[in-house]
Amino acid sequence: MTPGQKTPNTPLWEVFIRSRNGLAHKHVGSLHAADATLALQAARDLYTRRGEGLSIWIVPSGAIIASDPADKGMMFEPTVSKVYRHPTFYDVPDEVGHM
């Protein structure tokens, strides 16, 4: 490495894995790869060495749109108080059986 010589950036990808027992893809981390094919292979080598995975999604980091943490109150607070959306809010007599 000569001083002043910078290594060019390689694209960043986010990795989501659905495990053998899982129902949904979970975010597990990120990695660098020049293109999608290499990224998928790298994700397999990096994040599924212990038999964790059954399905991999990779997404260019820039493609993810996330909610702004500053808006947490506005986005998520109102749903907390609407407890009637949860099944446990309702009393169902035991004789009716499972509902």
């Binding site: 990695l31 660098h32 790869a33 290499l38 292979q41 790298a42 080598d45 990096l46 060495r49």
Partner: peptide
């Protein structure tokens, strides 16, 4: 680095 992992695998 990712390639070292792949070759190791």
């Amino acid at each position: 680095l990712e390639e070292e992992m792949a070759l190791g695998n």
